[in-house]
Design a protein around this nucleic acid. Sequence first.
RNA 1: GGGCGAGUGGUGGAAUGGUAUACACGCGACACUUAAAAUGUCGUCCACUUCGGUGGAUAAGGGUUCGAAUCCCUUCUCGCCCACCA
Length: 821
Amino acid sequence: MEKKYDHKQIENKWKEFWYRDNIYKAVDFSEKPKKYILAELPYPSGPYLHAGHMMRYTVPDVYSRYLRMNGYNVMYPMGWDAFGLPTEGYALKMGKTPQEVTEELAKGYKQSAQDFGYGIDWDREITTSDPKYYKWTQWLFLKFFENGLAVQEEMPVWWCKELGVLAEEEVLTGKDGQKVSERGGYAVERKLFKQWVLRIPAYAEKLIDGLKETDFPDYIKTAQINWIGKSIGAEVEFKAVAGDKNITVFTTRIDTIYGASAVIISPEYENLYDFVAEEQRGGVEQYVKAAKQKSEMERTAIQKDKSGVFAGTYVLNPFSGEKHPVWVADFVLTTYGTGAIMCVPGHDERDHEFSVKYGLKIGQVVMPADGIEVDVQKEPYTGYGISINSGEYSNKPSEQVIMEMTQKAENENFGKFKINYKLRDWVFSRQRYWGEPIPVVYKNDGAIEAVVDTNDMPEVHKKLPVELPYTKDYQPSESGGAPLARLTDWVETTDKNGSPAKRETETMPTWAGSSWYYIRYCDPKNENAFADPEILKYWLPVDKYFGDGGHTTAHLLYSRFWHKFFYDLGLVPTPEPYKWRMTGGLLLGADGQKMSKSRGNVINPKEIVEHFGADACRLYLCFIGPYDETYPWDDHGVKATKRFIDNLFLLRNKVRDDEGAGAELEKDYNLMVKKVTDMCDDLKMNTCVSEFMIFANAAKKAPSISTGQWKGYIKLLAPFIPFVAEEFWHEINNFSTWDKNNSVHLQEWPKFDPSKLAENTVIIPVQINGKVRAEIEIDSNADERAVSELIKNNADLIKSLDGRQVRKLIYVKGKIVSLVV
RNA sequence: GGGCGAGUGGUGGAAUGGUAUACACGCGACACUUAAAAUGUCGUCCACUUCGGUGGAUAAGGGUUCGAAUCCCUUCUCGCCCACCA
């Protein structure tokens, strides 16, 4: 029965059956324990899934298939994150509308996912740009709005007279250091503009705390904690010498306040000119203007070159009573703390640098606890220690001083305990067409009104979604404003009372739809709610979440924020959305460079599948190495896995049913089952493939393979090479027609027989002082005394010992003997 | 500059306290072939070797241990993320 491996024929046959009968269905409320395996949904930006996607989705697919065969009710869903720039950009390039290309691309992506044999329940497919989906994205947005977490705020953005609002990446630095727009080369400046923001800092504490409930790897937890950037300190008021104004600074080191030499405020400080003396006004204005030209990046990147200008006024130190000059400097950030700091050059690197440059006095008010001399004129001392030169606080440890001073400030009403976070408000509006319209209207008096009250469901169903109007005129405005503003018929509407009102014309960012898609997968077709709470109770949280490492402090944090907010509203049953997270590496071109059309090193998965077959490709992507690393594509690698599959077609000719068939392979087989099972649990798919190859090599040498071994082997292989496995499974069982219950993918995972692994005797090495000097064969149950006896009589060891006495013998059972002489 | 992670053959990697280099790629030799491809067999860390072996090697150096690629310290290199957060 010669049969050659014709991957096209095999793949076409089985994928039709699988997806027609939806054999990978995830069943709500199944009796079986559930597993929710999720990989970040792709955004459609090409006709076919690209190589990076195959890399991202194959290992999770193998894992979810493994779980399914181990008796779990598995959900491994997929959908399309179609709103946003990638799809809009593709549409612009193709000269079509985003609606047209989304439909086309989603179809292509689905087709390619099926070509790869992904075990997806397609009944749960979602598209974030589908009105049935974004109806609920808008509904959830309104929940934020109603609870004061979605607000409009003045944000510093790039502004250009000719083009309007620009993103950071649309601005270039000209030859003379002036900022210009990428398009047109017009002059730009920083300007405050009203933008929708989500107040994620309100959840900073919960986002830190919640990490305890997850099994995220430490590097992800640390990255999120660092990103949130919690710091504990105090706010302290410095009163102006002239007038009744004061400046509040934020500091984590109130204990160093006796060492302050100045108070520095940022150029964007709200009441800046209250602290500028008339004779300094010109200089300050010039400085502020220059600072506005610099981008945030520039202001922070050029650390060497601190700059500032004296404002000409003075404030009083609430502790020492000293008079400090007020300076304006752009190294002080407006967006953090109070936009003002106290300058303590003896104990802060930046303040030291600034003070050296402008000749501010540098004093020491903390000394190291170990008494070592430090020279703060040369270098600041930033550690804790003992306060000195600090009046009544001198000779006390820093920690104590911080507490006492903060207490005093609170008691006397010139300061307070304060926690700050680096985490900033999340800018949530885009001046783009292809996104969810923000569902609010502006009343005639300028007030903002939600289009509907989210609790009034009959109204919700009438008013949501605020559908994105179809138009061919969707390209970004030349003026930088929102394209939707051009659709005046759509903009003109009415408020709840029927009075004329204008629609919000800005849209949500790409991140919106993907912040809650894992919830919708649980109940994707629900028309009456964003998801049924009982169904969510069954599926959530996500058990394993695979995704992009770059999303750790973006999407992963954003969606945790949404989820925690929903949890507080009682909308979701768990405080955390994801139990566990793993980040995936990249697939590079064969030249080791990032794949790009300009380099011409792009791997086209469609061609790979056509040429080598989906199974060989899947196996290669598993074999290449651990999931979280980045690898160059290697044609030789796919050829190798293809060769392995070819060999399986030869091996199957050795399968026998008769007595004693496969006897030589019993140990190899059982060992493989054990190892592959353990490795799948640990997601080590690369070494699973090694085990398959080791068994194939052994089987090639053995006289025969038993039917039982072959069936077990096929089942182990099924998650990795689903098409070929299905073919072999039908062949060995003589299934002549398709019945979904006969699919190998719905069979039970093989068990191994531990008795087949046990050996009567084992050969282990004997070390003398750490060097292997002999190998001995021992009874596998031998105790230390028996081993000791054996060693005494071993000729090699007697020779190596050369009369020396064994001082100590260590026997690690079944592994090694170590002798110390 | 800071945080996190990683450095093992010519290459991807295996081994996470117990015989380092599994599995594969590549390369070499041989076989089959008119030839090539494909396939098969053997070899492939380094040095020495009387061909039995012996010694060395996991970025470099030090430490802990009977025993270290694995744990600790110092240095170097690379990657990712962040970058004046007071």
